[in-house]
Amino acid sequence: MKIAFFSDFTAPPQNGVWTSIVNLSSTLCRLGHEVIIFTPNPSRRKSIKLVDERIVIKFLPSVPGLLYPDLRLSFPVSPRLIQKIKALNIDIIHVHSPLAVGLGGIFIGKMLKIPIIGTQHNYAMEEDFLEIIDIHYMTKQVSSFLWKYTSFLLNQCDHVIAPMAMIKKDLVRHNIRPPITVLPNTIQEDAIQYVDEQTVSALHKRLGLSDRVVLFVGRLSKEKSIDILLTGFSHVLKKRDDVSLLIIGDGPQRESHRKLAKKLGILKNVTFAGELDQENLLTNGYYQLADMFVSASMTEVQPVSFIEAFFFGLPIIGTTALK
């Protein structure tokens, strides 16, 4: 089978939607299928590193997004793109996002009569999410508009995928008519390597960590509520000082988080390791050195980093989600 994925989310910087797309693509390729990902040309294209080189990526011309840093915008559709899809003889179009690229995927699918699958990856249309990302004006109306837009797009698909049952329930509540299947995100198990204790301890030392390690992996952006994590961690340090918080990821809030850690007087116990590509993250012992995985984010659907933490057998502390 030949499947074309359409995603407005691309990497770098690393993000959950992109990682989940690459992970599913990799398993499908391993099972003998072909996956071609259409995505905006990222700003730092040279640093893209995929664990699986069988995945084909077609970059679309893009410009920087205005509202959200790092989100690139492409033109929804072009005669050249339509010709390309036609020539590729695609069996299924799978749309992973509701912006220009996703819209283009739906348009091309309809035009060429190719079955379309749509996945709802997040809750960006919820009022609580809008508040978290600092949209405080007319949030109710904005949320209602975003839900209507999402419903319109998903109703153009032949089948919808929800990563969790909770999303399926909400999609049904918002009158999504195509059949909805709950299908979780996955990770690339074959890419994971356990390393020996000596390697873990060398990494531990190199990162300058204390004996015990609390790990967070994710984008350093507002919706991840890392300020709450840092504040909570400052309370931990009042009780015991043999703990480090290891934060892996990058994003627009990097500097403000560093400043907050400094203000709280905990910078010595917080390590910002920066963004790591999936291969580095999964093969060099980062999850193995942690005692637990913690996230204070209130906007998650089904983060890939949580699934990776499950795989490595880490206890997980999370928050109740939006609802």
Partner: peptide
């Protein structure tokens, strides 16, 4: 895992 209430750094800790 253990559940933390949103916006509760104390409970998280």
């Amino acid at each position: 895992g253990l559940l933390s209430e949103p916006d509760s750094p104390t409970l998280l800790a």
